[in-house]
Design a protein around this nucleic acid. Structure first.
Lengths: 108, 108
DNA sequence: CCGCATACATAGGCAGACTATAGTAGCTTG
DNA sequence: CAAGCTACTATAGTCTGCCTATGTATGCGG
């Protein structure tokens, strides 16, 4: 059963994918997330590409048109230093909030 | 530093509070969540009361006007059987999604 | 050459939380 | 005993952020 991406986690997932594997194109990022989570998290195209555009503006990633292994045109995204910093921030914040939620739903 | 309630988790937090402590009024629920999470999660009034109204309609809770310990008028909410079932479902779903996210951000 | 997978992009919609505002009533303090 | 603070409920309107739907283009396998 697939789920929507929990609001607020999309940037983090994308940034992390780029941090792990270096430059990737959008389609590849989506595929990676879907496969890593065994289809639990599926990033729709209508979510992904607008998010990548916003990330370009924020200077979290930079983009470059290249050829894929399949000989197609694709836009490869690379994490910038600012993007890496953002990733750290988002992961820390995520952990903080999840810890808080656990305190409510799993009392000791 | 306080955070917004992650969208999709509000019902779960409210339901869990009622499951733990039995009937509570809205204000008490909000206070409980805030204190349990050491001010990380603060439920705004404009989030809480509309949520409780929706939960009444869905028959997850029932409500009853009573006096508080401080001798004030307040509306006490009680979990219904359907509400308890909903809580179980939401917690399971939450864990499933969090596990998926961890697979992406904390690769083994 | 047809169908499918790959790949990017945008417009518009909707859910769900927030901000702002409003009101009532009991306690507390000077 | 008046004023102000706290407890408590409630609603209208806004905004953020992901989704649905749609359109375009191209390479490869049968």
């Amino acid at each position: 059963m697939r789920t929507e991406i929990p609001p607020g986690t999309l940037y983090m997932l994308i940034l992390k994918a780029l941090a792990r594997f270096g430059p990737m194109h959008g389609y590849g990022i989506a595929l990676h997330i879907q496969q890593t989570t065994e289809d639990v998290l599926v990033v729709e195209e209508g979510s992904l590409y607008p998010a990548l555009q916003r990330m370009l503006v924020k200077d979290w990633v930079k983009a470059e048109w290249r050829q894929t292994e399949n000989n197609r045109r694709a836009r490869y995204y690379t994490l910038t230093p600012l993007g890496r910093k953002q990733l750290d921030t988002e992961i820390r914040e995520f952990e903080r909030v999840m810890t808080a939620i656990r305190r409510v739903i799993q009392p000791a």
